[in-house]
Design a protein around this nucleic acid. Sequence first.
DNA 1: GCCAACGTTGGC
DNA 2: GCCAACGTTGGC
Length: 150
Amino acid sequence: MNYWLMKSEPEAFGIDDLERVRLEPWDGIRNYQARNFIRDRMQPGDLALFYHSNANPTGIAGIMNIAGPPRPDPTAFDPEAKYYDPKSQPENPRWYLVDVRFKRKLRRIITLAELRACPELSNMQLLRKGNRLSIMPIEENHWRTILDLE
DNA sequence: GCCAACGTTGGC
DNA sequence: GCCAACGTTGGC
């Protein structure tokens, strides 16, 4: 089983939205590194931290699990969709998504500042300068350390 | 809103 | 293949 961190802007879709709908296709990923994590390494049953980016406060807001196998992102095929990509064809999809299921909200947001202040997490990819990846793996020891902060 | 850091695109 | 221009991400 793998651990992940997945970013979303709560103004667009936050942990409260996921709590309401319970199950959501995590669509719109248009970055190859993130795509490869989804397509090649995500499995049903994996756990993921729900990270609020561009938020106040920014940080980890909840936990979800990967609810199904990776599948082609249908929004890439839809000319009306915001993340339409004419280079992605149904017979040769370029972009993938997974469905995620709400597990729980954290009792409080674990802020980015707290993560930065935690020495055990100093080498996390999330905290590296210039990091913009919206989906990334989390090491098991980091996962435990983060949730111990709650 | 600003801006640093990246990723992508396209001319050559 | 190089690299400048441009677009996007995301913290602040």
